[in-house]
Design a protein around this nucleic acid. Sequence first.
DNA 1: AGCTAATCGAGACGGTACGTCTAGTCTTAAA
DNA 2: TTTAAGACTAGACGTACCGTCTCGATTAGCT
Lengths: 205, 205, 205, 205
Amino acid sequence: MSSGSEARRGRPRSAGADERIIRVAIELLLARGYGGLSPDEVAERAGVAKTTLYRRWPSKGHLALAVVARLQEYDEIPDTGDIRRDLTVYLGEIAVALNRMRLAGAAEGSRSPGTVAELVAAAARDDELDRLRRELYERRNALAIALIERAVRRGQLRPDLDPGVLLEQLAGALYYRVLITGAPVDEEYAARLVASALDGATTAE
Amino acid sequence: MSSGSEARRGRPRSAGADERIIRVAIELLLARGYGGLSPDEVAERAGVAKTTLYRRWPSKGHLALAVVARLQEYDEIPDTGDIRRDLTVYLGEIAVALNRMRLAGAAEGSRSPGTVAELVAAAARDDELDRLRRELYERRNALAIALIERAVRRGQLRPDLDPGVLLEQLAGALYYRVLITGAPVDEEYAARLVASALDGATTAE
Amino acid sequence: MSSGSEARRGRPRSAGADERIIRVAIELLLARGYGGLSPDEVAERAGVAKTTLYRRWPSKGHLALAVVARLQEYDEIPDTGDIRRDLTVYLGEIAVALNRMRLAGAAEGSRSPGTVAELVAAAARDDELDRLRRELYERRNALAIALIERAVRRGQLRPDLDPGVLLEQLAGALYYRVLITGAPVDEEYAARLVASALDGATTAE
Amino acid sequence: MSSGSEARRGRPRSAGADERIIRVAIELLLARGYGGLSPDEVAERAGVAKTTLYRRWPSKGHLALAVVARLQEYDEIPDTGDIRRDLTVYLGEIAVALNRMRLAGAAEGSRSPGTVAELVAAAARDDELDRLRRELYERRNALAIALIERAVRRGQLRPDLDPGVLLEQLAGALYYRVLITGAPVDEEYAARLVASALDGATTAE
DNA sequence: AGCTAATCGAGACGGTACGTCTAGTCTTAAA
DNA sequence: TTTAAGACTAGACGTACCGTCTCGATTAGCT
């Protein structure tokens, strides 16, 4: 895409700086939550000037989003052919990530959604950040939707199924618990959820 | 509740203050979103001192939650016996409320989740506020769960169904769109969602 | 002028805060010069929030000016009837103040005009600050001009003398040395200056 | 001075760069004042890299001083034999230069001393710059002092006169007005000043 | 012709001061 | 005791600015 014919000029951005900043940011975010992610401190710990940080991520929200993106970097979903199992595994991974965020910087027993909500809130104040955040989720969801579509093509799922809606039912339920009701999410719940969504609610006659 | 024996002394609380504050808060929240709900400005517009406001709602989050609660005051869900229809109506109402919040204070084309996320984030920083917020949702969800249970009892839904999980699939999908993907929610979506959740995803054989 | 019929409302400004802030500011300014006068540090040392400081002095320049004003608080110039002597004393006092500023925060042997110039420069960036600064000097100079006028009335100085111009010759020379040439100013110089200005330069015939 | 034997190697300095930079700097300084003289912008407008600029003038202050020096390039003071007139002309020229600086980058009605003070302040932070600045003034003042000395030798001014002090009275008054009181300086003032200084203040008997 | 050395354009980088913003608390006098 | 008014605490956040450093690309003199 931007493969580089255009000869770069000027001092190139320090490659190490990006990585050091992100690492420190991950550490801080997981240890203290969104509120504890101070750009000042990140810069200092990364041995970098604040300007350098802000040149890359123009606000604390952007930085936090980059952290989340990094923590979610898994490029493909295993497709074993057993859609029920694959979806359960996928949702389980999301649950793990959500739980990690949930624990970040939270008081001991707190069931607080913490970082996830803060990030959505931060995005709510900055359209550009919001766009980036949505793109992140779209990218991730595209993988899951493709998984579902393959199952449809294999005849395992009904042909008139809307894969997006199914995914929203599944992922939505996880986020609903984390963000809204505070109920726990784990693999067992993921399995129940998949069963419920796939099998439907109406009486099987 | 507190009627009674212990004779209060000193100046009694201003009667109309609560209502005036809430009204201004609703107005501000809808017009400018959570960020625009400045306690200072609410107090000033309501013709009330900040102390008066904080004596009633101990934080901005509490006030915002009170606003949201007020905006969601509907006490029962119509039960026509047609569970598919009733659920669609119910979800449609939630969608309307979410859209209202979504528009609050947002720039024109913005699809920002705004207030909902801010409120969750605020709750993430204050356990007591989080408790209140969850109670609000539980109260509302209890109605929907009862609706589903009645349908189960009538034999319209499968007896082994977990009503909570079904509700999470449905409401969760709405919130997922609003908070995470930014996709639109409306009655048409509510209907599709109900169909998808009730009918399941597996091939009907 | 603003004598107080209009009943003050709200919490009055902390009287101690002003004083504490100014004291710390004086200390810092004299010890480290204008560059070392950090509003943050002043606030912290004075045990005061930054907002409190900025409510009173809207910029570092305003604060520094307040310090200078405080350091120059002498309300009257002794008038012994000997104008030559009185002017010398007056100029000597200015010289002392200038030297104090000059030493503020300067490297050992440095003859730098430091704070005085910084203050003028700061005023150059802020019209309102500049106005305040000029008023300060006008107030001070009015005293000296009155002194000169009295001498004129007593017949000690020529009746067609412009007191303002004379003062500018005198004070100006001091400031010129401090700000421009870096030459020393002391009482001996003050005396020479007065003699030169009073006696004129033309050949006495 | 450095002509000669040690054969320079490497790419020679760009010939036109110095001049282009100074030109842009003059333009910017006069248009927007010291604060508007951004090294970045000077370099960009001059089509030059910042390194190139800083290789020639090691700080913004040095550059500004170079600008001022350039603007003051007049090599001799006319000596008509009429010391009163010659001094007036000389002071008038200084006044013109000061007024030009004063207007630089100032808001319409502002009487701000701007650049002059900024330069002094900058010099206060850098001993080497301060030395250069003082040398500039000394060079200029030497001409005036020589002028005065010639008048002394001609018997027009008193033989015991200290030419330096007289000059300080004169130039000092101009700078005092510009830097301290903000009062206007022009040729009429220059004339009054010369008269006052030459004729003295004491009653002529 | 190659080697060496300095300059050049471009722009990232360091460092740090400054002021703003926002929530919630505290202190007055009056009701 | 509540109310209005507004000063107060607390601290994070982002901006501004100057001067340095690092690239790759030039341009000279020396060998």
